[in-house]
Simulated assay, not measured.
Amino acid sequence: MSETVVTDPASIELWHGIEEHLSRFDLIICDLWGVMHDGVTLHKNAGAAIECARRNGVQTIFLSNAPRPREYVRNHLINMGLPKQLTDFVVTSGGLARDEVRNHFSGAKLYHMGPESDSNTIEGLPVSLVNSPDDADVILATDLAFSDLEKHREFLSVARQNDIPFLCANPDRVVHVGDRLYYCAGAVADIYTDMGGDVRWYGKPMKSAFDACLDEVDMPDINKGRVLMIGDSMKTDITGAVGAGLSSLLIAGGIHRHELSNVLNQVDNDAIPSAVFTESFDFDDTIIPTAVAEELKI
């Protein structure tokens, strides 16, 4: 019988590497942006850690809120330098949104909110494309229409009046590209929700995204405590893991790097008091990770 992960709810473990903890897990679900790469450069230590997990018999799968098809993301990882054999299992929010359009909006008039560079997300779908959300039966958002978030209220007002569903293919609110921070489609979805609109989310933190990962690796009945979600976002990665009943590792070098710099200064015997952690975030204090690490590495 494999051991079950037991954690102390009063504290959060501080990990200095992943290898010594691998015996506690059968599956790793790993975020991409902020963990494996920064949008520009592959984090080589993170790639080595995933290879180490595979060598130790732990299955791995990437789960990304990238609003792109699975194959695009897989090829992007390979082009960045990640070994091809580590990219065999990939689930993306864009891929899940595409599945939704095929299954429930075939023949509809679809407005794509996002740049031309995201066109592969709508390529081949059984829909008619329209040039305005005013004319749509459904909106599929992969990015913003304007850099000014508040402009989306007026832009989407007719769609809201017509009760048009808004499919959010990138539920992230912000993302780091190198050292810069950018808004994502999730920030627009929040505005449409505030307007009273019908928003349908794909990807983390929705439980359906984690279930899709378990199905992808043919492990639907796995002990959830022996599944480790690795990510850098409290709002998507850690909230999703807690909601799905999974263990979780928060990477401190991602979008919460500033909040966590204070937390990491208050470590005692490789443990972070949960109270210290929650005080550093304007966040639900029931959402805490199993462990924190400065980066993903062996």
Rank of each mutant, 00 (worst) to 15 (best):
E13K: 14
W15C: 06
L22I: 02
L22Q: 03
L22K: 06
R24N: 13
R24M: 07
L27F: 06
C30W: 01
L32M: 14
D38V: 04
G47Q: 09
A48D: 13
A49I: 05
R55W: 02
Q59A: 14
I61S: 04
F62R: 00
F62P: 00
N65D: 12
P67I: 06
R68P: 07
P69L: 04
V73L: 11
N75C: 05
L77N: 00
N79P: 00
M80Q: 07
G81H: 08
L82R: 01
L82S: 00
Q85N: 15
Q85K: 14
T87R: 00
V90C: 01
G94C: 08
G95D: 12
L96K: 01
V101L: 11
S117K: 13
D118R: 01
S119M: 08
T121N: 09
G124W: 13
G124A: 11
V127E: 05
L129V: 14
S132R: 03
I139P: 03
A145I: 01
F146T: 02
D148F: 12
L149W: 04
L156S: 01
N162D: 12
D163A: 15
P165S: 10
F166L: 05
F166S: 03
P171K: 08
V174T: 14
H176A: 09
Y182T: 02
Y183N: 10
A185C: 09
G186N: 04
G186R: 07
V188S: 05
V188W: 00
V188F: 00
A189Y: 01
V199D: 00
K207F: 09
C213P: 07
L214C: 10
L214Y: 02
L214N: 01
E216V: 06
V217Q: 09
V217G: 09
D221K: 12
I222C: 09
D232L: 11
M234R: 03
T236Q: 11
D237W: 05
G240C: 09
G240F: 08
L246N: 05
L246E: 06
S248W: 01
L249P: 03
L249T: 02
I251R: 07
H256G: 02
S261L: 07
S261M: 11
N262P: 00
N265R: 14
Q266I: 08
N269H: 14
T278K: 11
T278E: 03
T278S: 14
S280V: 04
F281N: 09
T286S: 15
P289G: 09
T290D: 05
T290F: 07
A291Q: 08
K297I: 12
K297D: 00
